[in-house]
Amino acid sequence: MLKQFRPAIAMLGLMTLITGVAYPLLVTTVAQVVFPEQANGSLLRNEQGQVVGSALLAQNFEGARWFQPRPSAAGFATVASGASNLAQSNPALAERIAQDAQRLLGEGSAPVPLELVTTSASGLDPHLTPAAARWQVARIAAARQLPSASLERLIEQHTERSMIGPDVVNVLALNLALADNRAFAENESTP
């Protein structure tokens, strides 16, 4: 076996150079040239150039005036992301969902969309189904004194359709539109 250690160490060193150094550097170089936006985390900036988030990561929104994302088991922590890992048979899951459903019923009609009472796998799920976003329209329309139709249209505009996955709408994109769009700003009342 001792005779095999020289090639073992040499090969490990070579493979480290090729797959651990050259390969990620090559991918990084090409990615930074061809897809710089995505390679750097799909960051969103405001007019002053400050980073306000990533298009791919959920942010916590509270209050009636905003579209709310799915609840996060890790409190929207990004370091480290996490899930509830509650089993279906765990009474704690049913209790939590019952409480959340009760609270949400004050904001819309039954039944509450399943996505709004279940935590995602990452705790950072940036999306909702269009149905779960539409369910929130009445509440937001009332809080912002906006016509429901314009919010419905906003959801429609931001719906991402795919042949190989569910239709989804990005919650942060919706809220950025609410915050930025002049058409909405004109109609906004003071909170």
Partner: peptide, 15 residues
């Protein structure tokens, strides 16, 4: 519960 009765979404991502 007064929620949508559909497949399990706890611990799953919307997309």
């Amino acid at each position: 519960l007064p929620i949508e009765q559909a497949g399990s979404m706890e611990g799953k991502e919307s997309r």
